[in-house]
Design a protein around this nucleic acid. Structure first.
Lengths: 355, 355
DNA sequence: GGCTGCTATGTTTACGTAAACATTTGATGG
DNA sequence: CCATCAAATGTTTACGTAAACATAGCAGCC
């Protein structure tokens, strides 16, 4: 036996995954043989079709059990043309919102008999996104849920297999895609109005990063709500969602004596902001009221406990799955945006203005 | 045409996913026809095998591009006997550690050409876990990474397909499974020693929930480190990892005048603890030093910024993937525990004791 | 009693890929 | 100039499942 043959042998065994002498799993044919029926009857039992005698059914089930039969999902997918799997593309799981949404998607999908395949995108550049979609093309998914800004999606989406349905979270591209998102504007309006109603002359804003649609919409809604109330919007500060960036912005805001109320675009930045205010001796809420967005689990344990806008990520995730399955089943390119309402959670970081 | 026939028609079309008149994706045969070669040659090009003329290769690639050909992963998996997918079973993604580990797993897996399928387990009961494994049995995965206590796994794992490799995070079952975990004991020792070195007589401990091995190991290591230093361990408090539970425990600890240093089993509980201390007028770190575990991104923005034990979740995830792929390739039931070192991050929540 | 119609089951085939085996082509050397 | 050999490409087959079609058996009916 020469070397070439040995190599070929090793490759063959590896490809078939029997290297360790493992027993390949039982197939329908094996079960059929043991039960003394045709493999089609096994298939019928396996898929719960009617038209099988109770007696035959029990024989088949017994044979399945004895052989430890498990349907081969690859063969099933090949035959049926669907994988019962949903792909989820998202940026880093560093933000609470993405994670909670993902979790809800996975749970909802599971209850519908769908699995969820995760496609993390390391860096939010178009190249990276395109790379993720390119991987996705060869991946066994029937549909995709995108948790990111859709402008990164645009260039890449063209390369998707045509039958794959897409639902987008966190975007305003409802005219091109099916979009599910939190009612950013409504939540912001509630937050700003809460502060105005307490008697503050105006509300300052610590916004999220420039690239983010969620941040953009919160900032827009902040401006609009102030305008509707006839107030002048103070200069805008910006952070990158992190507590650290909130702290830096907070150091500047703390120097402004006229600033008595701040709406931070998320809870983490609110946390950093409050630290900065505290360090500069400006008491929350006595001198400055602070309100956040998200209602992360820790928000109630901040110093002081944070008033914030509660997002129902679980509902967002559930609606995503619902929408994507509906699209798959109807096969129709349905569009439009579904908004999930928010709820203002009042804690102790907001109060009437000083004087 | 009677009703029965209509029903049968509809079902057939639905099963083949052509309801909307969609064009099925191109297969190798289609590419082969267009390129004027055999489908085997297309296969060779698709898999990058040698022995194809540059000219032929280009023709095939051009045909692929024209038809928008994408390999059918179900067929590929069926033929090859592997799915290039790793399943990850985990409890709620509510804890930072699980999420960060998951993210690292997904990233590492992607760079190895593997996809990650998520299997959330709603409630950590044996029944739920068994359910997840049962779903897994029919799922297209080559290996599984379990992020949970292994005692829940034991009863369920027997039902796994025999060729599926398992790697476990967060467990001490290294003699039964391949385990990757943070060096809980080392991190705890560093935290407790830090406080002792600052001059505290002893260190109090706010532990995690009873069911958790991670919590158990941190508590054990806390006791051992104190014993080695000849100190008596004060009574143990317990939380459930949440900031809220840390707050409740903190209210009691705040009443203890002799308590000058607390090691909390995670950062969230440390946050709640510090809020309680603050409310009761006990200043951190002047009167009480507090140290956490995890180093969540917000820890540096707490009031005061939290000294804590940094966990390298990325490395844990990377090692999980490495281990599980190694097991798959060698097909050997390798066992043992790999520990990932921690790093003490000193911020302003710890100081020398009062007096 | 033979025909109709229904139910339970068996047989054939196709899904798309890639290994194994077969054939063609062209170059090299005696 | 033909035998030899290797490289390039083609043909056959099997992976496990389930739809489509085929058949056997049996009850009900005129």
């Amino acid at each position: 036996m020469d070397t070439a043959e040995e190599v070929a042998d090793a490759r063959g065994a590896g490809a078939r995954r029997r290297r360790g002498g493992r027993v390949p799993t039982a197939s329908m044919a094996d079960v059929a043989r043991l039960a003394g029926v045709s493999s089609q009857t096994v298939s019928r039992v396996s898929n719960g079709y009617a038209g099988v005698t109770e007696e035959t059914r029990h024989q088949v089930l017994a044979a399945m059990k004895e052989l430890g039969y498990r349907p081969n999902s690859a063969a099933r997918a090949l035959k049926r043309g669907e994988f019962r799997t949903i792909g989820v593309i998202t940026f880093s799981l560093a933000t609470t919102g993405n994670v909670r949404t993902l979790e809800a998607i996975a749970t909802s999908a599971a209850s519908e008999g769908y699995a969820v395949t995760l496609l993390p995108v390391a860096v939010p550049t178009q190249d990276e996104v395109r790379g993720a979609f390119s991987r996705l093309e060869e991946l066994a998914v029937d549909a995709v849920i995108v948790i990111m800004e859709v402008h990164l999606l645009d260039a890449a989406s063209l390369r998707l297999p045509p039958h794959v349905q897409v639902v987008v979270v966190d975007s305003d591209a409802g005219d091109h895609y099916t979009v599910v998102d939190t009612d950013q504007a409504g939540g912001t309006r509630a937050a700003v109005r809460h502060l105005l109603d307490l008697g503050h002359d105006t509300v300052w804003h610590l916004g999220g990063p420039e690239g983010s649609f969620a941040a953009q919409r919160r900032t827009d809604a902040w401006r609009r709500t102030l305008a509707e109330a006839g107030r002048t919007p103070p200069p805008l500060s910006r952070g990158d969602w992190s507590a650290e960036s909130g702290y830096r912005a907070g150091l500047e805001l703390a120097a402004r004596k006229e600033c008595t109320a701040v709406f931070a675009a998320n809870d983490q930045m609110a946390l950093g902001l409050m630290r900065a205010l505290h360090e500069r001796g400006r008491r929350v809420p006595d001198e400055v009221s602070v309100i956040g967005f998200d209602d992360i689990p820790e928000a109630g344990s901040f110093l002081p406990p944070l008033t914030t806008v509660h997002q129902d990520f679980a509902e967002v995730g559930r609606l995503c799955v619902e929408a994507v399955l509906r699209k798959m089943r109807q096969d129709g390119p349905e569009r439009g945006t579904t908004l999930v309402p928010t709820r203002l959670v009042t804690r102790s970081s907001t109060a009437v203005p000083p004087e």
